[in-house]
Simulated assay, not measured.
Amino acid sequence: MEQKNESLFTGFILLGFSDRLQLELVLFVILLIFYIFTLLGNTTIIALSYLDPRLHTPMYFFLSNLSFLDICYTTSIVPQFLFNLSGSDKSISFGGCVVQMYISLVLGCTECILLGVMVFDRYAAVCRPLHYTVIMHPGLCALMASASWITGFANSLLQTVVVFLLPRCGRNKLDHFLCEVPHFFKLACVDTTVNVYETFFAGVIMLLTPVVLIVFSYGWIVRAVLRIKSTAGQRKAFGTCGSHLTVVSLFFGTAIYVYFKPSSNDSQDQDKFMSLFYTVIIPMTNPLIYTLRNRDVKGAMKRVLWKDSDSRRWLRRTV
């Protein structure tokens, strides 16, 4: 049966956590709550950045892009996973798997580059404050954001095509909860050594290159901050970069662990939980990190809420 004709092949079975039925119920409830909070939190960031003129700056332009990415990223994975957790049907169609892999790769790669681009904004703000508005002009911001998206689309197209061209000889059981590149190589019935190296090289470009840029830039940022004589000035400068650095550490740390850790059968469950971390938990915590650590966002939320309450009071008086 495993050697059945691939022309009859209609989809894949995402095994996920099917060997732990009690865990599936707990995961369903937790993921549903996390997904709702992800949508609410990131939508709030986007709305505040649009509604409050004080947030019409390069930093919040990139933050809005990041929030939009997180919404789309989790939406490309979580609804299908919730469906699979809700019943005995663990299948996903061939087209659905292709779309999920392509979109999640696009958004994941774009986020990697965008987080690297955002450190340039922080570098300009801390190290070149007098020239910040000249350096980070709207045209450059739009160009860097567009370059992030274009690179993500191109890399995802290449990897997705390569993966789905591999012969699988009828194998359709994927020991994961999403269609992800490294786990697809295990379905192939040919030697995938070259493909693994190609994926590794792409990972170096998409993951390690932004990390090197971020580390190098923060080296200059720390050097500039330590030259500030006032403690209050240092605290403000570090606070400006703290949220971005926290998000970068969480996202790249887990992604690098999953994509560069040697594969083994004993670590399948560990890989799944780590994948859950950067596909579900991090997109939910990003808005919290930027909101709780950022006075500008807190202030914008208060101004927007007060403006709405003032408008309602005015309407009541006129009526």
Rank of each mutant, 00 (worst) to 15 (best):
L165T: 14
V161F: 03
T133V: 09
F68G: 13
N155E: 09
K173C: 06
G170D: 11
L69I: 15
I103K: 00
L158T: 15
P79W: 13
M144L: 13
E111D: 03
I71N: 11
N155P: 02
T193M: 04
P182L: 02
H137D: 15
G139I: 15
S146T: 15
T74C: 08
R122C: 04
R168K: 05
G87L: 04
L178M: 09
A147P: 00
P129G: 08
S91P: 04
F94A: 13
L157W: 14
N84W: 06
L140K: 14
F164E: 02
P167T: 14
F81Q: 10
M118L: 15
C97Q: 11
G139Q: 13
A125E: 01
F83H: 15
Q80L: 13
C97K: 08
I103P: 02
S76Y: 10
S104W: 02
K173T: 11
L107N: 05
V126N: 12
I92N: 04
T192Q: 07
M136E: 13
T110G: 01
V106R: 03
F164K: 07
F120S: 06
L105S: 14
P138K: 08
V78H: 01
L69R: 00
F177C: 06
S76D: 11
A142R: 10
A125I: 01
L85S: 03
P167C: 09
Y102F: 14
V117W: 05
P182A: 03
Y132V: 13
A147N: 00
Y102H: 07
P129S: 11
G152A: 06
S76C: 10
C112P: 02
V190Q: 06
N195C: 06
G116N: 15
C109V: 13
S156R: 03
G96T: 03
V78E: 06
G95P: 00
C189G: 09
H176E: 11
Y132K: 13
C189D: 11
V181F: 04
C72S: 12
L115M: 15
V161Q: 05
P182Q: 08
E180D: 12
W149S: 04
V106A: 05
V134N: 03
N84C: 04
S93F: 08
F177G: 05
F81I: 10
H183C: 05
C72I: 11
S93R: 06
H176W: 00
I150V: 15
F185P: 07
I71H: 02
I71K: 03
G116Q: 07
I135R: 10
C97L: 12
L165K: 10
C169H: 02
L140R: 09
F68Y: 02
F81N: 01
Q100D: 13
L107T: 11
C179D: 09
F177R: 04
V78Y: 02
F153M: 10
T151M: 13
V162F: 00
V78A: 00
V126S: 11
Q80R: 07
S104E: 12
T75R: 00
F120P: 01
E111N: 05
D89A: 10
V117I: 14
G95H: 11
V106I: 12
G116C: 06
Q80S: 12
M118R: 09
F94I: 05
E111W: 01
V194S: 01
L85C: 01
G87Y: 02
L85T: 12
S88R: 07
V190E: 05
C179G: 06
P138Q: 14
T133Q: 14
V190R: 09
I150C: 03
